[in-house]
Design a protein around this nucleic acid. Structure first.
Lengths: 248, 248
DNA sequence: CCAAAAGTGTTAGACCTACACCCATGA
DNA sequence: TCATGGGTGTAGGTCTAACACTTTTGG
């Protein structure tokens, strides 16, 4: 059974083309209603779509989310949503804020619990789930028209990420397992929205002793090949726990 | 109308006796559990419970909270709850986490949105609160038995406060309008759970230019009277907005 | 004059910021 | 050999941490 007044929305962040991107979808209501077993659930979903023609429109996008089932914890359900939509399991997921304005969804009271996911785009090809009409990455500065208050939710997720990333080493979840220092720096620049000094950045990262060299280098680049690094999991976990001495 | 599956709980923090305290009211888990077995009556009975906290026994306490009404935003409702229970309006309130384990309340699915309030104990007398008969402050290290997952919620609120207070100047909401530097330091020591160096603390606070002298001093103290300070609202707001350069 | 808390400064080391040039690679 | 991005060090200023004594007040 679905909880009528509660939904979960996931702001799925990925880093690519030196930009921070968000995964959005357009749900297919026909497909959606097929999988709903209970009459009650069916009615709710079709009511939602009937009363919001913009949900059917090709130009309006939304966050990946759904009404929460009564039997599942919110954290688990957020994992389910993000793994179904990206094909990835065990992604970094953070509950960041709950949105509860009375009129945030017209005609019906829906409180939505917002999570953001940080995923590494190189790990998979996006597979549309059965429910999905379209799914696409958008740069955070190039968002399409969004339904409901989803723009506000994305901005809140970004603000939360931007702050958290300065004290906790979570940005790394957006990178592939092996990466260059320049990629790491570009990632931070994209999240924080400002340029960082290359020498100071590298000094800082090295002092943290968070990374280890893989011994490998980039290949097939038309310039000097950069060293590839990975995290030292021991120190990474130490920093995650100690937290606050991570400052970019 | 109340939303059956959604509640709001407020962790109301106050600072007194050099300790951080939490305001709790009483709940009777036996009574509540018994009632919850009849799902149909749940809404009615819980409404009764919400409006008559005198249905209480002496041993188990709970956070101040209630099922959310369908017509009110969560933020507004959290304000209502905290102002009704403390008599204070316009208190600092922060939504910090939503608790959504499927079994957090027995026999029924209730997702609760957690807020914490920071209030100044000197501003009011708790007994004035109309809805509440049994209500009491407890030191955060001397909590009584709590219903449901309320202990977990309090610990999460504390952890959030402890972290936030290091980067944002919000701790001040716990102090009266005029206060001494020693009170400010003791507050930070209570929140962070560690001793701070008096000279370094004072230097830091002075450098922030966050405070202004009132020109007054303590009276009737059996030792040298300390100067009383208040916030410089201009700089306070600047720091709230700029945020992150506030570090204790 | 005693008890109790208020108030104050310095130093050494760590960290931050600003800044410019050579290096390695593939085309 | 050129274009492109990779990679490195230093100096000045600021911030931090550690540390002990004098001042004010009421009783």
């Amino acid at each position: 059974m679905l909880l009528k007044n509660i939904s979960v929305d996931c702001v799925i962040f990925g880093f690519d083309n030196n930009k921070l991107n968000v995964l959005l979808w357009q749900a297919d209501p026909k497909l959606l209603t097929h999988i709903l077993k209970q009459e009650e659930d069916y009615e709710q979903i079709s009511f939602l779509y009937d009363s919001h023609p913009s949900l059917l429109d090709d130009h309006t996008w939304g966050l990946i989310g759904a009404h929460a089932p009564a039997e599942t914890s919110l954290d688990e359900f957020a994992q389910n949503i993000s793994s179904e939509s990206t094909g990835l399991t065990g992604v970094y997921l953070k509950q960041f804020q709950t949105f509860g304005r009375a009129d945030r969804v017209p005609y019906y009271r829906v409180v939505t619990i917002g999570y953001y996911a940080l995923i590494n785009l190189h790990y998979h090809n996006l597979r549309k789930s059965a429910l999905t009409k379209k799914m696409q990455w958008f740069g955070i500065d190039e968002l399409p028209p969004l339904c409901f208050d989803h723009l506000e939710i994305i901005h809140a997720a970004l603000a939360h990420l931007r702050e958290t990333v300065q004290y906790h080493p979570i940005g790394f979840h957006l990178l592939p397992e092996e990466f260059t220092l320049t990629e790491l720096q570009t990632l931070y620049e994209a999240i924080l929205g400002k340029k960082l000094d290359i020498r100071n950045f590298r000094k800082k990262i090295h002092n943290m002793e968070l990374l280890e060299e893989t011994g490998k280098k980039q290949e097939n680049v038309p310039h000097r090949a950069a060293k590839l690094y990975r995290f030292d999991p021991g120190n990474y976990n130490r920093l995650v726990n100690e937290g606050l001495n991570f400052r970019i």
